[in-house]
C-alpha cells in the first residue's frame, strides 16, 4: 500500500466516521466523571496501601528498638526502617512526576521527552527497589526474629543448619534475580535512551 493509497483509505474512513456520530452529551460527561474516579483506583490505591504497610513496619521497628539490644540487631533494625521509609516515598514521587505532565502547555515532542525521561527514571528506580527489597529480606530477618520471636538470630539459635542452607540458597537466588531484573528493566531503559537520543539530536 503506497502512501497515496493510505491517504485515500484514511479520508474514506474519516468520511464514514463523520457520518456516524454517536456520542451523546450525557455520555461525554459520564466519561470524564468515570475517568476522574478511576485515576485513584489505578495508581494511588495500590501505592498508598503498600506505603501504609511499609510505614507500619518501620513504626513497629522504632517502637521496639529497645528490644533489639545488641548493636548489630539495632543496625539491622535501623537499616530496615530506612529502606521501608525511603522506597515508597521515592516510588510515589516518581509516579507523581510521570502523571504531572501538562498535556496542553507541552508540545508532542516535549511531552515525549519529559515522559520518556521520567519513565527511564521510574524504571531505574524500580530496578533499585528490587535490589533493596531483596536486601531487606536479609536485613529484616534478625529484626523480626528478635521482635516477634524474642530470639537473637546470631546467638540464640543452636542449630546452624538452616542458616547454612539459607545463605547459599539466597546468594544463588540473588544471582538469578539480578540477571532477571537487568533483563526486564535494561531493555526498557535502553529503549527510552534511544528515543531521547533521537528526539534531542534533531533540533
Amino acid at each position: 500500500m503506497e502512501l497515496e493509497e493510505m491517504q485515500t483509505v484514511w479520508s474514506e474512513i474519516s468520511n464514514q466516521l463523520d457520518k456516524q456520530k454517536k456520542l451523546t452529551d450525557k455520555m461525554i460527561i459520564m466519561m470524564t466523571q468515570e475517568q476522574y474516579r478511576k485515576k485513584w483506583n489505578k495508581i494511588a490505591y495500590p501505592e498508598i496501601f503498600g506505603t501504609i504497610i511499609c510505614f507500619g513496619m518501620a513504626i513497629l521497628i522504632f517502637l521496639n528498638i529497645n528490644q533489639l539490644e545488641t548493636w548489630y540487631n539495632i543496625f539491622f533494625g535501623l537499616a530496615s526502617a530506612v529502606v521501608l521509609i525511603v522506597l515508597p516515598i521515592l516510588s510515589l514521587r516518581s509516579i507523581n512526576k510521570m502523571s504531572g505532565i501538562n498535556f496542553y502547555e507541552n508540545s508532542y515532542r516535549d511531552t515525549l521527552i519529559k515522559y520518556t525521561k521520567n519513565k527511564k527514571q521510574f524504571q531505574s528506580l524500580q530496578k533499585i527497589s528490587y535490589y533493596l527489597s531483596f536486601l531487606l529480606i536479609f536485613l529484616i530477618l534478625p529484626v523480626t526474629s528478635k521482635i516477634l520471636g524474642g530470639k537473637d538470630m546470631f546467638t540464640g539459635i543452636k542449630n546452624l543448619w538452616p542458616l547454612l542452607v539459607f545463605i547459599p540458597a539466597g546468594i544463588t537466588f540473588f544471582v538469578f534475580f539480578t540477571k532477571w531484573v537487568k533483563k526486564c528493566y535494561g531493555k526498557n531503559i535502553n529503549e527510552a535512551e534511544s528515543i531521547l537520543k533521537d528526539l534531542e539530536s534533531n533540533e
Binding site: 489505578k42 510521570m98 505532565i101 498535556f103 507541552n106 508532542y108 515525549l112
Partner: peptide, 12 residues
C-alpha cells in the same frame, strides 16, 4: 490533536 496525542503517548 496536541492534547489527544500527548495523552496517547503518556498513557500508562
Amino acid at each position: 490533536y496536541r492534547v489527544a496525542l500527548n495523552t496517547a503517548i503518556t498513557r500508562l
